[in-house]
Design a protein around this nucleic acid. Sequence first.
DNA 1: TTTTCTAATTATCGAATGATGATTAAGGGA
DNA 2: TCCCTTAATCATCATTCGATAATTAGAAAA
Lengths: 239, 239
Amino acid sequence: MPDTSAKDELKKSSSRRLAPDARAQQILEGAISYFAEYGFDGGTRALAAHLGISQALLFRYFPNKAALVDRVYEVVFLNRWNPEWKVLLMQRDLPLAARLASFYKDYNRSIDRFEVIRISLFSALRHESISQRYVARLREQLIAPIVAECRAFVGLPPPEILPLHALEEQLVLGLHATVIYGIMRKHVFHAAPPTEPDFMIELQVDGFIQHAKEAFRRVHAHAASGSERIVNRKAESIS
Amino acid sequence: MPDTSAKDELKKSSSRRLAPDARAQQILEGAISYFAEYGFDGGTRALAAHLGISQALLFRYFPNKAALVDRVYEVVFLNRWNPEWKVLLMQRDLPLAARLASFYKDYNRSIDRFEVIRISLFSALRHESISQRYVARLREQLIAPIVAECRAFVGLPPPEILPLHALEEQLVLGLHATVIYGIMRKHVFHAAPPTEPDFMIELQVDGFIQHAKEAFRRVHAHAASGSERIVNRKAESIS
DNA sequence: TTTTCTAATTATCGAATGATGATTAAGGGA
DNA sequence: TCCCTTAATCATCATTCGATAATTAGAAAA
């Protein structure tokens, strides 16, 4: 009778005495899962229990809790960015509607995960700088290029000639919002989760494109007669 | 020489020995402001300092921290609902576009506040039941009626004859998302805040209405050929 | 098998948390 | 003016927090 059973189930679950790299990786992934559920105020003891290890062990692999949280941020924010998105969006030999649909399908696939959306929100609510850097990159690398492509599509001058207007950004962000808000409904509000995301994205993109010409012209008419012109301005107004 | 100065500045700031009702109200408002900024894991000592009172005083007006948090929830969620919204949305003597624009302008005005949007998010991330009840009411009282009005607008059967389909909800939630996400950008992500909300709402509503006929027909065609039909289904799929 | 290295746990620290009496003092009524 | 009610604070409790040092024990090398 060979000695199987008891040894194997220990090995697969936590298997004490892991190689340091494997243990660090396991802690990091457990922290992502745990902090996504309970937020960054969740305790290190509960996290350790979640991992099936002692609380002190966390501090042998990360100097303190903040360092662990920072690593979580890095994985969630930085590892999830695809530089090809911008390239795809600017490929003018493809119809704009096809580019937008293709991009948002992939973007949706990339961020439609419990951990990603919730950790993004937790960190944004904490005013973490990495969150604001992500938002800035989103704006510069994706939203602004889309606005530029829309300009070309509807027959308006490029950004080099006519600076981008904040209202144009908001118009594009309206399309962006349909994707993001759907993911939030699913993972944060636990309300009627989106089904058939690809079909809905195609539908929303078609609506956006069909309305784009009129919408951009109205925005420019409004801007010409109205108040502020250039895109940058400070946030914050508490009341 | 009359004794002015020192007495006045004490009176205006915190003026010790308030009437109990006034003090309770002051604590509640301070708690809303404080928890909106720091989340519900913020400490009672820091909250008391924020109010200029001793920490122990909080517990003479609220039996424990959870009770105070519950009162905050009530104020933020329940006091912010206008039953007239549903009435307005179903007023068929007005054009649908006008009803939607009017509703979303008012809805936006009502929830575009730092405290409201952030406390909503904090509580939703905690899976608080009051948050889920709010989402259910939003869906039943606003989204479903809007879908029904769109049905009438595009010439499809009413919900009594043909049950609402989840994809129709998602279509309407796409419009809803443009408003909500704008508010989140402003108060959570601190990115390019929305300007001229009324103008943008008119624009988004017009785009939605112009596309509605085609969109609803495509949704119904897709549903007829596709898989699931009825609106309810369970959420949750972590990976 | 025995030895050796080090991954992991146990025990514990000081600081901060929510919460509870004991004490002080503000301010209207006599 | 004094008194008496009670709003408010002070001092302190038991827990829980992040973090550290001492100890144990697992697996490869000898």
